[in-house]
Design a protein around this nucleic acid. Structure first.
Lengths: 268, 268
DNA sequence: TGTCAAAATTGGCGCGTTGTCATTTTTGAC
DNA sequence: GTCAAAAATGACAACGCGCCAATTTTGACA
């Protein structure tokens, strides 16, 4: 009925139009362009990717691409949004791996590590997009979309902290407000993990400075932060270690799954 | 012979040649190019700076610039080296502001904040240079130079930690090795401060997430890390605050001084 | 199935930027 | 004043982006 009525072709359901095959193809092209650009970025590095190359991969011409994205930076931002969305999915999955707030918190940290390891190109894309030349030329709509995705990543962490306060695992010492404590913790853990991973990826001098196990340092420091605020149960090396060992393969599998997911085209 | 022989003009001391006026000007031009590029970067943003614009500022043609730098990225790297050197000077000055290791450590953190506030363009340049498109095209020599400068910044912090261990303010608990403890602390503080400042500068979603005082969070978290490791004297809000208030204006003055310093030309 | 307007695609154009190089100019020793 | 070495110049080719008029494709209607 809503489907093939006459012998000719398609028709419209009132609210949501059933699109003809070609029309759907066009709609999906936005996503296909990203699929084409993604491996090019992986191979050649981000600056070296030309519109020409993307078009070649797509088997169309540059002009067509401009029907979907206003410029190269716009494509980059769209890629970044897809990446942040994957990160968010990692985090959301991570918090399902335990009922205990402190373990959930740890799981998010490990999820970030796995994200960097299993989806390194996504991580690199996020980095690049952050910087002004790209950020400024991207369309405002896409900027907002990206910011909102990041927001949700942060919310995931705040949620766990909120749950810890509710449950009493984390208490408000020294008359600090709940708001303030959350702020401090979110920002602290975020800086520690994000900053640490960025440094690991981009600072060649770290090795010379005798920093040979950045991941261990990150983990230990996060726990130090949590301990200092009295988040119960306090750090226990054995328990922590076995939790990490237990969830890491699950997180890796989830990352792989995300990579293979069909390209949901982003609302352009 | 090697000295001033004839009446005409210049001559060479054996090891270090005494250069004629024009020769010295050429030698200094490398630095002058950086001076020309720096404000352009400040105004127009980094990607928008063209060789043409730099040449105009220098009152010469593009060709001449290529006598000193192999490409634009090379100029950027040179600028970054100058920036990192300024940061290093900030750190070196910071550690002179107290005799107590823990205060010295705090001083380095505040120095980083002041660096970002008073030399924002330097901070931005550092960020940009870190990213692959630039990093890969810069000449290897300059890359090494930059890495070495960063190294010295890190050494400054390791030194303070070393002194704290020597003096007994910081003790090796749980049989952790000195090497390992230093590694963990350097990396942790670095991530926390660097990561925090980068996030503050580039993450628009932070405000929405209720993070309104990132600086306070950074400081408090650093102290949490130090406390957790038992670095004496433990955090005391009053003492810390008054130390910060005492050194901040000094650090700001030092930053201003660095800005006005004549351009020592980097070895190209 | 043929017609035709709307929509999408094409590919060539103008512009700006980069890096090179043969030519011209400047420098400074004699 | 002469001349070789060094440096500056500016024109040139290549490239990539973004635009747009011309062309092709699509799909509704008869």
């Amino acid at each position: 009925m809503s489907a093939s009525s006459s012998s000719t072709n398609c028709s419209n359901a009132p609210g949501s139009p059933v699109l003809s095959a070609k029309q759907r193809e066009i709609r999906a092209r936005g996503g296909r362009i990203l699929d084409a650009a993604y491996p090019l970025v992986r191979e050649k590095g981000l600056a070296a990717v030309s519109m020409e190359a993307i078009a070649r991969e797509m088997q169309c011409t540059r002009g067509t691409i401009y029907n979907h994205y206003v410029n190269k930076e716009d494509i980059l931002s769209a890629l970044a949004t897809r990446s942040v969305r994957r990160r968010m999915e990692m985090f959301r999955y991570a918090v399902t791996l335990s009922d205990q707030p402190r373990e959930r918190c740890a799981a998010i940290g490990i999820a970030a590590e796995v994200y960097v390891d299993c989806l390194p190109d996504d991580f690199a894309i996020e980095q690049t997009t952050r910087h002004d030349p790209v950020w400024q030329k991207a369309s405002p709509t896409r900027r907002e979309l990206l910011a909102e995705c990041e927001q949700q990543c942060i919310n995931c962490l705040s949620g766990v902290i909120g749950a810890a306060i509710e449950s009493g695992d984390l208490t408000l010492a020294n008359g600090i407000s709940r708001q303030r404590l959350t702020e401090q913790l979110v920002f602290g853990l975020w800086s520690l993990v994000y900053g640490g991973l960025v440094l690991e990826a981009t600072s060649p001098s770290l090795g010379n400075a005798g920093i040979s196990h950045p991941r261990i340092a990150i983990r230990r420091n996060c726990n130090a932060l949590l301990d200092d605020l009295g988040w119960r149960p306090l750090y226990d090396a054995g328990a922590y270690q076995s939790f990490v060992v237990a969830i890491t393969p699950k997180l890796r599998r989830h990352a792989k799954r995300l990579l293979e997911q069909p390209a949901e085209d982003s609302p352009a």
